[in-house]
């Protein structure tokens, strides 16, 4: 098996994406940094991606506050009726 040091931009950004979750391997990170030497776009991508991760972190905290719409009382009544109908039949 040939393990290649040189990677494409597609592969480099994929490593960067995985790294946002702390799950890129050390070898992956080395390959990514070598890629940066010749590719300013992927370096920029990484910078922006890291920013998005921070933004998503803030967003994710908010999303846990339970603003989601649950079943309304009326919807529950309707659902109850449907279920009862099926129990009888």
């Amino acid at each position: 098996m040939k393990s290649k040091i040189k990677i494409s931009c597609d592969e480099a950004t994929a490593i960067c994406d995985k790294n946002q979750y702390g799950q890129a391997s050390l070898f992956d990170k080395i390959k990514l940094n070598i890629h940066f030497i010749r590719c300013k776009f992927c370096k920029l991508y990484t910078k922006q991606n890291t920013y998005l991760t921070r933004l998503l972190g803030v967003y994710s905290e908010d999303a846990h506050c339970g603003k989601e719409k649950c079943f309304s009382e009326k919807e529950k009544e309707q659902l109850q009726e449907k279920v009862e109908k099926k129990i009888v039949s």
Binding site: A14, D17, Y45, Q48
Partner: peptide, 17 residues
């Protein structure tokens, strides 16, 4: 999963830009 995450994030970055 990682392919999906990769595609989602490249698309998301572009959309935000």
């Amino acid at each position: 999963l990682w392919v999906i995450i990769h595609r989602a994030r490249t698309q998301l970055r572009r959309c935000m830009e």
